[in-house]
Structures are given as structure tokens and as C-alpha cells.
Design a protein around this nucleic acid. Structure first.
Lengths: 341, 341
DNA sequence: TTGTAGGCGTTATCAA
DNA sequence: TTGATAACGCCTACAA
């Protein structure tokens, strides 16, 4: 085996097949513009040589990459996994590839990755939530990169978005909790700063309290990053109050999983001693013990619709629509009515 | 705001700053070769214009991308999340970017994605496991793309790899299970075909049986994809046997989570009625009820070491070493000795 | 249906 | 320290 192995290029294929590079290129991109005979010969040569088109050269010449970029806050847990999977499947069906990065919930990292993805020639971008610097939106518009915001519903409709109203969703759950007689509510929230989803969910609870004549400022809230262990720690802190809460509402299922786990270690029965709720309805929610009452989010739908909208924008079929999806309550074992003494 | 916004290029910067494109390029890549004065002027221009280097052009000219590609079998659950996170952090610290794709456990999809990543100019690749067609290894070598195999320990040392011996690890757990008096063992395995990790783990159990004078062919095994629901279904099937198993060993924690969940629904107490074990020790394992006895895999170490090895290979400091890591048993509540009647 | 040739935005080699 | 200029591999009018 020679050590100076040459990586075949379009030129090589053209030379061996006895045609021009233009013809080879056509065989790759617009087969209908090529006679069946040459097509066959060229394809055989491509195979024989083991030729693979150079993506970067392609991107430069065509100014299109058939690549969509997505930046999600975390890959560490399953929150975005299902939606992203659907997103990617839909893209793939239309001949697009997906590039994913994770911003670790850090705005500056997200900005950096947006630039990186654009620099790589992404035809479009999927971002989570709407809360970020105006400079980023300006940049995206200047570069003409179609962008869809997901997992959120942008309040002033200035951007293409596919998602749901986090505030209304959580308010719906809180209404139910209050209707069950709970009056001592505590909250384990995600970090609200720079996270419109977390902020909306927390606000939803407060709005519900107000609507029921309760004082929203008296609500005990712990903000913490979305990790199981953090949920556990926050739960323990909240339960140390006297009198202790009858229900702990969590900003997502991961925090709730931590809370349930810690409850067990503390010898507290759920929901007999304390109710716990989540948000997202990831697979974990239905295998926890007790099973978790949570807000069901249509992750797969969101992913599919976001992908389709983005493709439509890239291909100039849409100017950027706003789609608002419905969520529902998944009532399970971890929440139950307060039993009056 | 003009509608014909122009995206600034190196040329634009050069023209505005009154220098050549070569100088601008130097300011970007080898600042020490440029006088402080021009450097400052050029940097200011870059800022003013909002210039971002075009990645594809760069890749073509430099034949390096500072990008590493990784193809993992799934993003749907947390199995690879922690290790990949560590992998990416280590890369980032050395100025490399990470591109991730998921193959959904499909060999042909993996092959396709390997080609895609190479076509994009990835400087190196991280793959999971060693079992794949020789043609792929040939391709990688022909293209001169450094590759590290992880989550596995290649038997014949022909490739760079960072991982552990799946077979020995599971055998260690099985030895323990047998030492606890269990004789009716059943297994929920991942799909062995094309998955050397799953195959090794299953083999480990069989070897342990043989060493203990048991018949490995009498072992009930269900192979199924790594999903919670599949673990649950398989568990139910296995428990329908008479006499039923005293322990169900699962190919990973996700399957075990499904098994525990289903046990509860069936009214079976774990570990009183049946013991359950997992593999991987993902975060989920310690919050399940009961907590899961499993094989602890040093995910973060694996990610860090793999990244470092890959970087060393890309930068010609290593020819491709093989690193074998130690695993340990995480003994928790879900496994307990058989109580003789 | 096929071929010619210019250009995409960088880097890198040589000179100056 | 700086500047021309030739690649890099492909696409795409435009011509034939």
C-alpha cells in the first residue's frame, strides 16, 4: 500500500471518466441534465475511485450547505432529546443535515456558537427561547440567516417561532394545584436570568396565586440549574420550613426527579406527606415512583413543525411564521388533594 | 437599513485597513508576525466591519479545521452524555470544536456520517466500539484521519482506543450475583448484532456461569433496543416464567430502569421478590427506587483521555495508543442475596 | 448534452 | 514586516 495515497477530486473523476468536471458535477447535483450513458460511466468511476465530494469546496462554490444548525442549552439530560430527534428526522427527510451545539445555558457561549455555525455556512438556525441580545438578532438578519425560535412563544411576534406559552402552561397546573386545596406551595425553579422559559413558568405560578387571592411575594422559591442533584438539595431546604409546604412545584421533570428521590431519603411519602409536580413530561416522568404529575409538552410535534418551518424559510416559501402549540396536564400519582385535618 | 447588505470578507478588511489580505490573515492567525501598529489598525477594522472569517474558505486553504467529529449511537438517553461532555470540554480547552452525530445504532448510517464528517474536513474522529466493516477502517486510513475508539477495549490492539473491557466488567458483576446465591438468572441485553459492547456484556455473564459450573445455554436472554419501555416489556416476559428468576441482569441502566418500573406495576418488590442490576451508572441509577446496583463506568475520564489522545494524534504527537480503564461495582439496593427457604 | 472558465474566501509560499 | 499570487475543490453561467 503506497504511503502517498491521493484523495480523489472532481478532476480525477473527470479525467478518468473522460468528461469535463462540469459533467461530473451535474451527475452529482442535477442528474436529469446528463445522458443516461455518461451518468452511468461517471457514477462507476466515482465508485471505483472512492470519490467523496469535498463539503467545504462545495459550500464555497454553491453558497448553500443543506445544513441546519441548532443550539440547545444542554445535552446532559433528556429535556431536548426527543424534540431534537424529531427535528433532525424531518430535516433528513428533506435532504438537510443537522449540526448541534450546546450552550450550557451560557449566553456568551451561545453567541459564539451562533457565529461559528453561520461561519460554517448553515442555511438556517434553530434557537431555544427568545431571550438574547438584540445584537445577535441584528447579526442574523444582516447575514440573512433564517432562524426559528423553539420551546417558547415569542410575546411580540417579531420572530419565527414554534412553541408554547410557558407561563400559561404552568399557570394551568398551578390552578389545578390550588383547586386541590393546596395553600402552602413552594417552588424549585430553573435559573430565571437569561431563560425566558424558566421565567415564564415561575410567573405562571405567581399569576395563579394572584388570581386565587394569594400573596405571590410570600411564595418560597429556590432557583437552581436543571440537575437532579440540585433538585434534591433544593427540596430538602424547602422542606425544612415550618410549617412545611404541602406541594413542591418544580420547573422541570429533572428537578422533580431529584425532589422525589430526596423525599424518599428523608422518609417523606409522596404524595401522602407532600405533593410534587414537574414540567416537560420526559420519559422519566412516568417511571418515577410515584409517577410524576407534570405538564405534557408535545416535543415531537414541536421538532417536526420547527424543521418544516425552517426549511420553508430557507427555500423562500415562508417569511417566518409563529406557531403556538397546546400543552396539557399529565395527572399522575405525585400530586393529590390536600386532606383537611 | 439597506437591503443589499454585504457580508464583509478578508478583502474588505484589507482594503479598508489599507493593507494586503495576507497581512489581515496574519493578524488572525500569527499575530507575532505583524507589527503592533498594523495589528491594532487591522483589528479595529475587523471589529468595525463585523467581519467573521469564512470557515469553509479557511478549511480549504489551510487543510485543517480544528474540528473533531464524534459519532455516537444515540442521543436519546444519557448513556453517552456525560462522557461526551467531558470530551468536548477537553477539546475546547485545546482550541478544537466538536461536531456530533448520532447513528441510531445503524451501521450504514454510521458509515454515512463518517464520510460526511470527513468530507467536512474533520481533523479527527471519535467512534464508539470497534465492530464495523473493514472498509470503513480502510477508508479512514486512506484519508489519513486519526480515529479513536471509545467505550470499548479493542481485542487485538490494532486501533487507538480508550475504554474498558465490557465482558470482564459484566463478568465481575455476575460473579458477585452468583456469590450471593442466585441460580435463576435472566438477562435483558441490548441488541448484540453489530454492538460489541452489548455482546461483550452478555458474554461476560455466560463466562461467569461457566466458571461457576452452570450451563450458559440455559440462560434466558431477551435482546432489545436500549429504551426504558423495552426494558419494562422484556422484564414482564421474563418474570412470566415458572419458576421465575431471582435476578434480572440488564445490559444497561436504561433497561434496568424500565425493569424496576414494571416490577412495581406487577406488584413485585425489588429486591425482595426479584433483584435487578444495570450497567453504566448514569445519574438515574442512584435516584431510582430502589437504587440500582450497577457497573460504574468512568465516563468523564474516558471522555477526557479520548480527547487528549485524539489531539495528540492529530498533532502528530502520538501514533494511536490503547488505554484501558478500570470499572467498579456500584453496589446499591436493587441486588441482594438469595434467602434460602 | 457537454465543455470552458471564472469565482467562492482563505492560507501559504516567495519575494521584496 | 509586508505584498503578490498561486493554490484549495467545486459550482455555474455561458458557449458550443
Amino acid at each position: 500500500m503506497s504511503d502517498t495515497t491521493h484523495i480523489p477530486t472532481l478532476d480525477d473523476v473527470a479525467r478518468v471518466a473522460g468528461v469535463s468536471t462540469a459533467t461530473v458535477s451535474r451527475c452529482l447535483n442535477e442528474q436529469q441534465k446528463v445522458s443516461a450513458k455518461t451518468l452511468e460511466r461517471v457514477m462507476k468511476t466515482i465508485n471505483d475511485l472512492g470519490y467523496t465530494p469535498n463539503f467545504n469546496a462545495r459550500a464555497m462554490a454553491a453558497k448553500r450547505t443543506h445544513t441546519i444548525g441548532a443550539i440547545i442549552p444542554t445535552m446532559e439530560n433528556a429535556i431536548f432529546a426527543r424534540g431534537l430527534q424529531a427535528f433532525q428526522e424531518t430535516l433528513h427527510a428533506s435532504g438537510y443535515n443537522l449540526l448541534v451545539s450546546s450552550s450550557a445555558y451560557q449566553p456568551d457561549l451561545e453567541a459564539e456558537q451562533i457565529r461559528a455555525l453561520v461561519a460554517r455556512g448553515a442555511d438556517g438556525l434553530l434557537l431555544i427561547g427568545y431571550e438574547r441580545g438584540q445584537d445577535i438578532y441584528d447579526y442574523l438578519q444582516r447575514r440573512g440567516v433564517p432562524t426559528v425560535l423553539a420551546w417558547t412563544s415569542h410575546p411580540d411576534g417579531g420572530h419565527a417561532s414554534v412553541g408554547f406559552d410557558n407561563c400559561a402552561a404552568m399557570r394551568m397546573l398551578a390552578d389545578r394545584v390550588l383547586a386541590m386545596g393546596h395553600r402552602r406551595i413552594a417552588v424549585i425553579s430553573g435559573i430565571v436570568e437569561g431563560n425566558d422559559r424558566a421565567e415564564g413558568r415561575l410567573r405562571g405560578i405567581r399569576e395563579s396565586l394572584v388570581a386565587h387571592g394569594q400573596d405571590p411575594d410570600a411564595l418560597p422559591v429556590i432557583q437552581t440549574a436543571y440537575e437532579i442533584e440540585n433538585g434534591a438539595a433544593a427540596f430538602e431546604t424547602l422542606m425544612a420550613q415550618d410549617p412545611r409546604p404541602t406541594v413542591v412545584m418544580c420547573g422541570n421533570d429533572v428537578l422533580a426527579a431529584g425532589a422525589i428521590s430526596r423525599a424518599k431519603h428523608l422518609g417523606l411519602a409522596v404524595p401522602e406527606d407532600v405533593s410534587i409536580t414537574g414540567f416537560d413530561d420526559i420519559e422519566l416522568a412516568s417511571i418515577l415512583h410515584p409517577t410524576l404529575t407534570t405538564v405534557h409538552v408535545p416535543h415531537r410535534d414541536m421538532g417536526c413543525i420547527a424543521a418544516q418551518e425552517l426549511i420553508d424559510m430557507v427555500e423562500k416559501r415562508s417569511m417566518g411564521a409563529t406557531r403556538k402549540l397546546e400543552v396539557s396536564l399529565a395527572m399522575r400519582e405525585s400530586l393529590r388533594p390536600v386532606v383537611e385535618p
